[in-house]
């Protein structure tokens, strides 16, 4: 279990929750970013988190990933042992070829084989020996997905993973992520600013505001979730209203 900063106790994982957060406070200097936040994720649950910039989305994600060494705070936070993070930038090491980027930190004789399988899953079989600079932005992000999933995480944290991609590539990545999620079933916390992305992918959408969860809505739309349906439009409008956007055309 990772030791988290700020005197937090990381309790042992409980069987009924992949993530359990109670009364989490995070402050940088005098600015309180998270203010008594509560959130629970069931194992295998896909949760999308929306919020305006500065609402503390990334801070929460960093707390869960154990990356907030310098933040002060209190509260209970428990996360699984195997956590993978997908960053907004693919964050591949430029001096390592694609395969070596995926195997980075893996141990065991079958590491190479597992990495090849993961690359095949994201549709990059045959690109193992390419340098990261030779890949497009979408391909780089797919390598980063492969690197995260090859570790078979119980929790996948994704910080606006498709924010830097063009709309067409983003759509393809949504399909890919949905397929990978069906196959591996980690709990997912997807931070995004895109309401449609949240509705398309998640079982549950939470809205972060003022350092707390301001809304927590289940997405029980039948698949495939299409833009046109009245249920979709209603949910979208509710989420946008929670984000402080008046009309449905302002995202």
């Amino acid at each position: 279990m990772a030791t988290h900063a700020g005197g937090l106790t990381a309790t042992a994982r409980e069987a009924d929750a992949a993530v359990r957060i109670e009364g989490l406070v995070r402050a940088f200097g005098t600015r309180t970013v998270l203010d008594g936040l509560d959130l629970t994720l069931r194992p295998g649950e896909f949760v999308a988190m929306l919020g305006r910039s500065g609402s503390g989305k990334s801070t929460l994600l960093r707390a869960l990933a154990g990356l907030d060494h310098d933040a002060g705070g209190e509260g209970e936070l428990s996360a699984p042992d195997h956590v993978s993070v997908v960053f907004q930038d693919a964050r591949l090491l430029p001096w390592k070829r694609v395969l070596a980027n995926v195997t980075l930190g893996l141990t065991g004789a079958d590491a190479g084989e597992r990495a090849r399988t993961a690359l095949d899953e994201v549709g990059l079989a045959g690109r193992e020996d390419a340098w990261p600079v030779e890949l497009s932005g979408g391909e780089q992000q797919r390598v980063s997905l492969a690197r995260s999933l090859v570790r078979e995480p119980e929790l996948l944290l994704a910080d606006e993973p498709f924010g830097a991609l063009d709309a067409l590539t983003r759509g393809r990545m949504h399909t890919l992520l949905a397929r990978l999620y069906e196959r591996h079933r980690p709990a997912v916390l997807l931070v995004t600013h895109d309401v449609d992305e949240a509705i398309a992918l998640a079982d549950r959408v939470v809205v972060l505001d003022g350092g707390r969860i301001a809304a927590d809505l289940a997405v029980d739309l039948p698949a495939p979730r299409r833009h046109g349906t009245p249920e979709y439009a209603a949910l979208r409008t509710r989420l946008l209203a929670r984000l402080g956007v008046d009309g449905p055309d302002h995202d």
């Binding site: 960053f87 964050r91 090491l93 001096w95 980075l104 930190g105 690197r147």
Partner: peptide, 27 residues
């Protein structure tokens, strides 16, 4: 610093962190 973060999330040991990230980065 982003690569240091990456190494932390991948739980690299200190020797591996030096070998795979620090030394190639300083080359």
């Amino acid at each position: 610093a982003r690569y240091v973060e990456l190494a932390e999330t991948l739980r690299l040991s200190r020797p591996r962190f030096l070998l795979h990230i620090v030394l190639p980065g300083a080359l």
